[in-house]
């Protein structure tokens, strides 16, 4: 099975974003299809940093679009203490969502991040979205046992990080990668 059998290009997301005319008075940073993309069960990776310090990288389980233009990331607590501490000390946060079968990737940068206890819906989304990524990984050729271990959710050790997205960038490899998604 060749990987990325349907490769995506940065230009298509940039064009779609330009075409998207927000109808709300306070439009989301992400057009609706991209918000849906981020929650569709793909790879979620996170970085946080306090200015002047070394950033911390982590892998997340899921993301959720929340009321009030907030975005929630669901992560494992154990092993991510450094990242959570950076958030609690007012650090900035970024998250990238990537689909292995297409390489389509979107990064959001956020502020006003807070660490919260995860709720039941977070747990359900963590299970649903990691299962989506598990299937993607199998589709591109990873052994099923590996894909299952890679996306195993520590259900009793979840934490949520809520943030306000300030900007979104297309991260799909290729010409145009890194450009900001804006109208």
């Amino acid at each position: 099975m060749p990987r990325a059998s349907q490769p995506h290009s940065p230009e298509s997301d940039l064009a779609a974003r330009r075409a998207y005319v927000a109808v709300e008075s306070a439009p989301h940073v992400l057009a609706p299809d991209l918000a849906e993309f981020c929650q569709s069960g793909i790879s979620v990776i996170v970085g946080a940093c306090v200015a002047g310090e070394t950033p911390v990288a982590a892998t997340g389980y899921a993301c959720r679009l929340m009321p009030g233009n907030r975005f929630r990331l669901v992560l494992r607590k154990l092993g991510n203490e450094g990242l959570l501490e950076a958030v609690e000390r007012g650090g900035a946060i970024a998250a990238t969502f990537s689909q292995p079968t297409t390489h389509r990737s979107i990064q959001i940068k956020g502020s006003g991040a807070v660490v919260l206890p995860a709720d039941e819906e977070d747990r359900r989304e963590a299970l649903r979205q990691t299962d989506g990524l598990r299937l993607e990984l199998i589709y591109i050729g990873y052994p099923p046992a590996f894909a299952a271990a890679y996306r195993h959710v520590a259900e009793d050790d979840l934490v949520a990080v809520d943030l306000t997205p300030d900007a979104a960038f297309v991260q799909t490899p290729g010409p145009g990668a890194g450009a900001e998604l804006k109208p």
Binding site: I45, C49, P55, V56, A58, T59, A92, T96, K109
Partner: peptide
């Protein structure tokens, strides 16, 4: 074989995360 995750930051402390 499995892509790695990299987080970096600019001088203002804005992180960037990618595979």
């Amino acid at each position: 074989i499995v892509p790695s995750v990299i987080a970096t930051a600019d001088v203002e402390g804005t992180p960037n995360v990618s595979l």
